[in-house]
Amino acid sequence: MEYTTLNNGIKMPMAGIGTFLLTPDEAEAAVVHALENGYRLIDTANAYVNEKAVGRAMKKSGVARKDIFLETKIWPSFYEQEDAVEKTLQRLDTDYIDLLLIHQPAGNYVAGYRLMEKAYKEGKVKAIGLSNFTKEQVQEILDICEVKPAVLQTEVHPYSQEKELKEFLDKAEIRIQAWYPLGHGDTALLKDALLMELGEKYKKSTAQIILRWHIQDGNIVIPGSKNPEHIKDNVDLFDFSLTDEEMQKIKELDRHARYYTSTPELLAKYVKMVPPVDEQK
């Protein structure tokens, strides 16, 4: 495993498993399998309604809590609830969270950020950050924060490389984390001729080539899967490296093509959505 150091000195694995769209049973099984196969970064969220399952999986795995980097996200409808972080800790059945993010730039996200800062100062959270924020929204937080965000989780993949955003984040000492690192399973990306050619050269899948590109480009990745073979393959990334020339060729694949587009209407809808967190298994 390769690690990066966040702006507050905390070390974070460069590759982990995401649990978006996994049921509690699927998330529990996937996280146990991931930890058995060398993963140490686990990503979940209030909105995924599988935090309890992730907590169970960490204990079931037998891996020491101190060796697991646990990441979760607060949902907009909870930003103004003073006990939002405490309830998240209870669901995960843990004393602390390694990285806590604001999930969406919706509603009173400044209040949500203040909750995270308080939790950080109390030692309940080791690092805090943002998810799905634009460059301008990140700057808004930088202008008012007492604790600097360490990570921005956003959509990044070879067809949408976010070069300008990454340059801004580098200057602000904020690490970028890619969700949809494989382009949401888009067959066009996974069957891209260049990536398939590199897969043949290195005897790796196209997905592994994409994930290796991410890591060498400085992107933390959290591909999601419930398939044991895919989970195993998605962390088998550290026995080869792409050349500078190959990295440049992949850089030229950028189409600025996103699969997720935020709108004011969508953000307003998020504020009204209340994930059934108390009903999860």
Rank of each mutant, 00 (worst) to 15 (best):
I128Y: 01
A84E: 06
E86W: 00
E117T: 11
E82F: 08
F78P: 00
K124W: 01
Y96N: 07
L100Q: 00
K118V: 03
N108Q: 11
K126C: 06
Y109L: 10
E71N: 09
Y96L: 04
P76Q: 15
K60T: 14
Y109M: 04
K126F: 05
N132I: 02
K66N: 14
S77D: 15
W75C: 03
E71S: 09
L100A: 06
A84S: 14
Q104D: 09
L100V: 07
M58N: 01
Q137A: 09
T134K: 12
P105T: 14
G107D: 03
T88Y: 00
G62A: 15
L99Q: 07
K121P: 02
E136R: 12
K135Q: 14
F78R: 08
E71A: 12
I74Y: 00
A64C: 12
G62L: 11
T94S: 12
A127H: 04
E122C: 04
L92R: 05
G129R: 00
G129W: 02
L101T: 11
R91L: 14
K87G: 10
R91V: 13
A111R: 09
R56N: 10
K59W: 08
F133D: 06
L115A: 06
D95C: 10
Q104A: 06
E136S: 10
Q81N: 07
A64I: 11
A119R: 02
L101K: 01
I68W: 07
